[in-house]
Design a protein around this nucleic acid. Structure first.
Lengths: 330, 330
DNA sequence: CTGTTAGCGCTTTCAA
DNA sequence: TTGAAAGCGCTAACAG
């Protein structure tokens, strides 16, 4: 692999000048810069990440912490992050932390602490206090996305408002017996908890009767939960599932039970999962890919010295009506 | 951040000894090793990736090239890779190359050439000759997975056999008019081409009449293709789609057309996508997650000095019957 | 078994 | 605007 001195020799300058010319830092005369650039191109020179990082302290890489790589929301956000970072020439170091507790701990206390990255994006961070502390100890900008972490600056949709929007949509259609499929989450400020609270509050305000079923945000879980909800006699006329995957599970369970959607039961989800399209699923779209891009831009902005405030903010969401909700027929 | 000399001071040894003790390379007395380990733990010392890489030439990271992060197969394979690499303490550097041609080129000629990784896994590599050459020029082990690249050693399922297996399954059920949804791919040895060829050959051998519809491996594409296939009068009695996503699209299109699956039309896919379960989709499972793990183990084995032959091989697949195929009713 | 020392390949003062 | 030289933090001969 060609090194900087080879380029320097070919261009007839010192390595210092090559470095300045190629990095754009420090003064270089236009003609020298051109000569260096040409030499570098001809030799196919690319700076060594290790050497450059060691010398500058900058890695040109962002770490991304992902709990589940194979779930739609996470991989979609990751795709958005990747797009945005590629544009800026940054690499992604992926930290998959779905693993067992012991391995998860190793990733946090070893892998992440090798100082390989200039910043961190953590998706839907269910981090305990120790993990959070380890992250902050890294001394690099951190953007937490999709779910507020009280200890980190966060870029997230207002999931409380999301829960209210979905619920209000059903209430406005005339539903009174509405069930929520979701979970309490790991804390009162977790995404599941916020969506649930939004639901509970709107139901309360409307004087309507809420019911609940817990599920794990998978199709399977949503299906099982809906089965339970729909078997009784005074079954709900509408279901608000805290994710599209669960909502799809609910649609499938309803069909199995011989119920028509939305005639017999209305169903709404949250996410904007493409899959929902095939079920005509009405949902609260949260533009996952865009969230990833925003997160990437936020860390980079922070690296560029922008106010950290930029990192904090709320992301857009919108009701997407596709037909799985309607006025109750009884 | 604490450095190696701090640890050395605390343990009362030289930095060289710390390095040896912590890396396990070179002789260190058990008691010294213990003292060093303790000092390191107390200080929370973790070696700097940049410095270590620069000194050793080893990065403890594997690059993964992924064309589509947000498609099931790719994210599932990636999850498998991540699991396996985490176990060995390796980091993942993710190269998402879905981007526009220009950016794609930048990733290959810049990002990947920063020597950040010890090895490369490329998933379903549709690489042109120049890109392949760039990769080889990296001088690190490369494992291409999910799709043979004639220029790279490859770990892949025998997609030709997959195509034959799926087709034979339909033939054995008694179908004669069978359609294939897939594509020609970018070359005769691409995954789509191999599956298609397997289909064509079995149909030939059986003297049955094949028909074809092209699609892009998405639900949407599969749905559109199936719609075309099913509208004619002498519509096929069975469809073999080259991916589960297309097969699901086909199931949806069939339902829309008022056809029952499998009574009116049998449908089989390829992948083992979890989603298929919800459609009762019969498929040829290719154990995507396992593929990722195998690929990771293969690169690591190569790094450990195992014979490169280990990298080359075929992966398992198996017919998974879930009910979307049956004997033709007419 | 352990310490000394010379780099690994860049970047960045500091002087010129 | 450019070059010389001193590191960045760690590892690997080489001696001892």
């Amino acid at each position: 692999m060609v090194g900087i001195d080879e380029v320097a020799r070919r261009a007839g300058v010192s390595t210092a000048t090559v470095s300045r010319a190629l990095s754009g830092r420090g003064p270089v005369s236009p003609v020298t810069r051109q000569r260096v650039q040409t030499a570098a191109d001809e030799l196919g020179y690319v700076v060594s990440a290790a050497a450059s990082t060691l010398a500058t302290g900058r890695a040109r890489a962002i770490g991304v912490i992902v709990p589940f790589l194979d779930r739609w929301f996470f991989s979609t956000v990751l795709a958005g992050i990747s797009d945005a970072l590629v544009r800026r020439g940054f690499d992604i170091t992926l930290y998959g932390v779905s693993a067992a507790a012991e391995e998860r701990h190793r990733v946090f206390s070893d892998n992440m602490r090798r100082r390989r990255v200039d910043g961190i994006i953590t998706i839907a961070p269910e981090l305990d206090a120790e993990e959070t502390e380890l992250l902050r100890g890294l001394g690099v900008p951190i953007v937490a996305i999709a779910g507020p972490n009280p200890l980190l600056t966060t870029l997230t949709v207002d999931d409380h408002a999301v829960g209210r929007l979905a619920t209000r949509h059903l209430l406005e259609l005339g539903h009174r017996r509405i069930a929520h499929i979701g979970s309490h989450g790991t804390s009162g400020s977790s995404v599941p908890a916020l969506r649930r609270r939004g639901f509970a509050e709107e139901m309360d305000a409307a004087g309507a009767a809420p019911s609940f079923a817990d599920a794990d945000f998978t199709i399977e879980g949503g299906s099982a939960a809906a089965r339970r909800l729909l078997e009784g006699d005074d079954r709900p006329t509408a279901i608000f599932a805290a994710s599209d995957e669960m909502a799809i599970g609910a649609v499938l369970a309803a069909r199995e039970a011989g119920l028509r959607v939305p005639e017999d039961v209305s169903i709404i989800g949250v996410d904007g999962n493409d899959l929902g399209r095939w079920f005509g699923l009405t949902t609260v779209d949260q533009f996952a890919r865009g969230q990833g891009e925003r997160a990437a831009e936020a860390v980079l902005a922070d690296l560029d010295g922008a106010a950290p405030a930029l990192r904090r903010g709320t992301l857009p969401f919108a009701l997407l009506e596709r037909g799985s909700t309607a006025a109750p027929s009884h």
